[in-house]
Computed example of a mutant assay.
Amino acid sequence: MSRVRRSNDWGFPRWRGYDASREATTVRLCDRHGCEEKGDCPAPKAPNSPERWYFCQRHAAEYNSKWDYFEGLEKAEKEARAKAERAESAGYAESAHYGWAGSGDGSRSADEMRALELLGLEADAEFETIKKAYRQRAKQVHPDVKPGDEEAAREFQALQVAYEVLRAGEERRTWRG
Results as ranks from 00 to 15, higher is better:
Ile130Thr: 07
Glu170Tyr: 11
Glu62Asn: 05
Met1Arg: 10
Ala84Ile: 02
Ala76Met: 06
Glu126Pro: 11
Leu166Met: 09
Ser95Cys: 03
Gly39Cys: 03
Ser7Gly: 12
Leu159Thr: 04
His33Ser: 10
Leu166Asn: 04
Glu88Asp: 13
Pro147Gln: 03
Ala84Gly: 02
Asp111Gln: 14
Glu170Pro: 01
Ser95Asp: 06
Ser107Gln: 08
Gly39Glu: 01
Gln57Asn: 10
Val165Leu: 10
Leu166Lys: 04
Arg28Pro: 05
Gly99Val: 08
Ala93Tyr: 07
Glu23Phe: 10
Tyr54His: 15
Gly177Pro: 01
Pro47Gly: 07
Asp111Ala: 15
Asp19Thr: 09
Gly120Leu: 08
Glu126Leu: 13
Ala24Ser: 12
Asp105Lys: 11
Arg58Asn: 09
Pro44Phe: 00
Glu128Lys: 13
Asn64Glu: 12
Glu85Asn: 08
Ala110Lys: 11
Ser49Gly: 02
His142Ser: 13
Gly169Arg: 01
Trp100Phe: 14
Ala123Ile: 09
Ser21Gln: 13
Gln157His: 10
Lys78Tyr: 08
Glu117Ala: 15
Gly102Met: 03
Asn48Val: 08
Asn48Thr: 12
His142Trp: 00
Leu29Ala: 09
Cys30Glu: 04
Ser7Ile: 08
Glu88Met: 12
Tyr163Gln: 04
Ala87Lys: 10
Lys38Tyr: 09
Ala43Arg: 07
Asp105Ser: 10
Gly11Ser: 07
Arg86Tyr: 08
Gly91Ile: 02
Gln157Val: 08
Lys139Phe: 06
Tyr98Ser: 06
Trp53Glu: 03
Ala84Cys: 02
Arg6Ile: 06
Ala133Tyr: 02
Arg86Asp: 13
Glu170Leu: 03
Thr25Glu: 11
Glu171His: 12
Ala24Gln: 14
Cys30Phe: 02
Gly11Cys: 09
Asp68Pro: 06
His142Gly: 05
Glu122Lys: 14
Gln157Pro: 01
Leu29Thr: 11
Gln57Ser: 15
Arg167Gln: 15
